[in-house]
Design a protein around this nucleic acid. Structure first.
Length: 876
RNA sequence: GCGCGGUUAGCUUAGUGGUAGAGCGCUCGCUUCACACGCGAGAGGUCAUAGGUUCGAACCCUAUACCGCGCACCA
């Protein structure tokens, strides 16, 4: 055990510690273990992903849970992996293909393109995994899974076949969300609403057989006019009633279209007349369907117009066409007016372009087990933290739509359907050489919804499924969380048929979103997302983790500020230096029993604070309040342990023949040993390093036990007889603080030792007096019987403290200070008196509370009297 | 439009009925023998607004405003 470097240098230790943990297999989960199980599955990051602060937060939280569980003696499985992210990866690879060879995936061909994706995945796909290791994540990397692994892929296909046979998966021609940039269908959940400033065009349609009459329609999309096959008005709308059943003239290509009545039209919006383009709008499609209107598709899949009948528009991009259509209308005198209009458009999550509602033949899933999915959450078998996400979940389940699961994407799980001469078969293996497999792949989420159990072999499932908790962001509550619950209930991977055994997790912890200092979302384009690896480089993984977790309250977004990470690092350094201090005194005891020694009041008080912290920590963890837990530990280490106890210990340890010195060392070692373990989940590296350097126990801290509520209570019981001592320690700390206030008020510099005088309420022992002197930087603290002449005074919990320095007393200042103090006390006293004298209060407030107030008033009175005495003294 | 959160010191926030707490930042003083990634002291708040309940409200209720999020077929 040698002296420690002056400051904690995270870079120097992290790598080798992590390598040792891996080498020793410390994070491997053993399904055969007899220990109680604790398990998590890591939300698999995309293979295109780079580590973001969101990942840091999410994985730090999981690591805290995993490491705490190991310390508690549980068998932990934290199962990691990556997600193939069909569309995202395909876009990334296609982009680089275009850049390098100037061709798209279609020119390259399916086989060649997939080869390139594989290649890309091998070189880039695990970057984020390596980054997670730098964070200290204690996942069981030997079990790393990938959603395109052979076994996993087969499971995805088997599940498809199973659901198909149950009649839950079907093929249908429906209105779906089409992404014109990625050229694929999307599910409703992958379409995000975005507010856009656009225009509302008022277009005049001539009414057939009624010369000079026009029906004006308000639309945001004049470019879809060629696809109009009708006009709809509300059946009760008096303005248009006479025209129902008639026809209007479509401006281009010119032609008559029927005017129909439909209750879905809102007569109060726009003009109350709606142009019907059944091929390009969901509502229009429904109305068109009801009235037997033809469907005219005027868009190519890529969003360019396909309408040879209107050459001016044909081939234009949809946004170009919009402008062109407006000017065509203008020319024809059919554009009544244009208004500015703010509205919401659906945007493709990945490609970030407005989606097109499009009629298309796709595969759909009718969700099974919805009743049960609702029930397991309502009945608390799965608990959400924060709780309010339950409502969001319920609302989604109750209004659920069939899931469009096919994608016109190559990178992904190929749909297990085989075609021959227009007929198809659904099975995993090919039915024969002349059968052709469906070209489409499955939505990536159709594979991730199996993640909680298809990543586990039977033995692992037996031990670890259902998992204990899922830590994830609320942005994927539908995409992933809800679907995983449904999958668990439907496929029943658990030990038995009960709901309880098949839910994928018992709790879901939703993290907050990390925003920048100005409250904006982190995004690449804003350039406001710091690189976590740079932060790790600067502050260490421990500093980053602790700093971030301390400011991440449950359920609230986090405003990120690098200052807070700096604080995390400073905290680690504080801990480091407390250990550095300890090493200099005496050998450390790995199994200290402070209660077997004679203890100073300061040691008692610190141990009591440890006990309090332990109990509150347990409550915080039970409620998944991680920032609360980190805050408790921060306060204990910084305030109770370092600022108070350690400073007092300096006196005890340097006093010749102090009878409490051995107790102070024992208390130090005992508290430090537990503190390191309590902090280990938050700061794995520095705690492991210190644990080893101080030789506090076995070769790794990771399984060294946990200071839970039971241990905390046991400690409190052992200290029960010493409550008085703890109070005394607190009184001395308070007196020292008041003394420093006096010094500061009179401008005595910190480095100048000055004598104090004390009129003590009860005699003060030498040891306590020495600590008070040290904390107040006093050269001595001498007893007096009465007020010394003309010396500034403060009231303290141990008596009146005077600073009797010749010539420094500023009478005016001192009078003002004391008068202010008295007034403050008086205000306080008055408030209590009013309460006590109010008959309604005494009638309602419990007696013990009244007693406490009376006691408080008495103390205030005594304090005021003393200040008055002093004021009188000064004016003599 | 409906629903859910939030609004406390310059910033980040704790505080679910009895005199508003912390960290950062700021000001001042300290190379005090663990730590300047530190130590000490101080200034700084009509708890978003308006009503209500209560002896008493940051806290409970009702509106309003602003911010964020979810949901929704008003073109």
């Amino acid at each position: 055990m040698s002296d420690l470097p002056k400051a904690y240098e995270p870079q120097a230790i992290a790598e080798s510690l992590y390598a040792r943990w891996l080498h020793d297999g410390n994070h491997r989960a053993d399904p055969g273990s007899l220990k109680p199980a604790f398990s998590l599955v890591m939300p698999p990051p995309n293979i295109t992903g780079m580590l973001t602060l969101g990942h840091v937060l999410n994985n730090s939280l999981q690591d805290v849970l995993a490491r705490k569980a190991r310390l508690e003696g549980r068998e932990v499985l934290w199962l990691p992996g990556t997600d193939h992210a069909g569309l995202a990866t395909e876009m990334v690879v296609e982009r680089s293909l275009r850049k390098q060879r100037g061709i798209g995936r279609r020119e390259a061909g399916r086989e060649e393109f997939l080869r390139l994706v594989q290649e890309w995945r091998e070189t880039h796909g695990r970057i984020i995994i390596e980054q997670l290791k730098k964070l200290g994540s204690s996942a069981d990397w030997s079990r790393e899974r990938f959603t395109m692994d052979g076994d996993y892929s087969r499971a995805v296909q088997r599940v498809f076949v199973e659901l198909y046979r149950k009649g839950l998966i079907y093929r249908g021609k429906r209105m779906i969300n089409w992404c014109p940039a990625s050229l694929t269908a999307l599910s409703d959940e992958e379409v995000l609403p975005r507010e856009e400033q656009s225009n509302l065009y008022y277009v005049r349609y001539a009414v057939e057989g009624d010369p000079g009459s026009f029906l004006t329609v308000a639309t945001t999309r004049p470019e879809t006019i060629p696809g109009d096959t009708g006009i709809a008005v509300h059946p009760e709308d008096e303005r248009y009633r006479r025209w129902i059943g008639g026809r209007a003239l479509r401006p281009f290509p010119q032609g008559p279209i029927p005017i129909v009545a439909d209750a879905a039209v809102d007569p109060t919006f726009g003009t109350g007349a709606l142009k019907i383009t059944p091929a390009h709008d969901k509502l229009d499609f429904e109305i068109g369907h009801r009235h037997g209107l033809p469907i005219v598709d005027i868009l190519h899949p890529d969003g360019h117009l396909h309408c040879p009948a209107v050459p001016e528009l044909d081939g234009l991009d949809r946004f170009e066409a919009r402008k062109k259509a407006a000017s065509l209308l203008e020319e024809k005198g059919l554009l009544a007016k244009v208004e500015d209009y703010l509205h919401t458009v659906g945007v493709s999550e990945r490609a970030n372009v407005p989606i097109e509602p499009r009629l298309s033949e796709q595969w759909f899933l009718r969700y099974p087990k919805l009743e049960e999915a609702l029930r397991v959450v309502r009945e608390g078998r799965i608990r959400f933290f924060p709780e309010h996400w339950e409502k969001v979940y319920e609302h989604w389940i109750e209004n659920i739509q069939d899931w469009c699961i096919s994608r016109q994407v190559w990178w992904g799980h190929r749909i297990p359907v085989w075609w021959k001469e227009g007929s198809h078969r659904c099975q995993v293996e090919s039915p024969g050489p002349d059968w052709i497999q469906d070209p489409d792949t499955l939505d990536t989420w159709f594979s991730s919804w199996l993640w909680a159990f298809e990543t586990m072999d039977p033995a692992t499932r037996q031990k670890f499924y259902p998992t204990s908790v899922l830590v994830t962001g609320p942005d994927i509550i539908f995409l992933w969380v809800a679907r995983m619950i449904i999958a668990g209930l439907e496929f029943q991977p658990g030990r038995g048929p009960g709901l309880e055994e098949n839910i994928p997790f018992r709790a879901v912890y939703f993290t907050g979103l990390i925003r920048d200092r100005l409250g904006r979302k982190m995004s690449k384009s804003l350039g406001n997302s710091p690189d976590p690896l740079v932060l790790i480089e600067k502050y260490g993984a421990d500093g980053l983790r602790f700093g971030l977790l301390r400011i991440a309250p449950q359920g609230q977004d986090i405003r990120f500020d690098e200052k807070q990470i700096e604080e995390g690092r400073n905290f680690c350094n504080k801990l480091w230096n407390a250990c550095r201090f300890r090493i200099r005194y005496a050998p450390i005891s790995a199994d200290a029993h402070p209660w077997e020694h004679r203890l100073s009041p300061f040691a008692v008080e610190m141990l009591a604070a440890l006990g309090r912290t332990g109990i509150r920590l347990e409550e915080a963890f039970a409620a998944y309040e991680f920032s609360e837990a980190a805050g408790l530990l921060y306060a204990f280490v910084w305030d109770d342990f370092c600022a108070s106890f350690l400073e007092a210990a300096k006196v005890d340890l340097t006093r010749e023949g102090s009878p409490t010195a051995s107790g102070t060392l024992a208390a130090f070692d005992y508290a430090l040993s537990w503190t390191l373990r309590l902090l280990h989940p938050f700061c794995p590296f520095v705690t492991e390093e210190l644990w080893n350097r101080l030789e506090l126990g076995p070769s790794t801290i990771q399984f060294a036990g946990w200071f839970g509520a039971a241990e905390a209570r046991e400690l409190e019981e052992r200290l029960a007889a010493t409550k008085e001592a703890a109070l005394q320690a607190r009184a001395i700390y308070q007196a020292a603080e008041r003394g420093r206030h006096l010094r500061s008020t009179y401008g005595v510099p910190s480095n100048q030792k000055v004598p104090f005088l004390l009129r003590a309420d009860t005699p003060l022992g030498d040891a306590e007096r020495a600590v008070l002197a040290a904390l107040a930087s006093a050269s001595e603290i001498a007893d007096v019987d009465g007020p010394p002449p003309k010396a500034p005074m403060v009231l303290t919990a141990v008596g009146e403290l005077y600073l009797p320095l010749e010539g420094i007393l500023d009478l005016e200042l001192e009078r003002k200070r004391l008068t202010n103090e008295k007034e403050k006390l008086a205000r306080n006293w008055k408030g209590i008196q009013e309460r006590l004298q109010n008959p309604e209060v005494s009638a309602r407030v419990p007696a013990e509370k009244l007693e406490a107030w009376k006691e408080q008033a008495k103390q205030l009175e005594s304090a005021m009297r003393r200040i008055e005495d002093q004021l009188r003294e000064l004016s003599q």
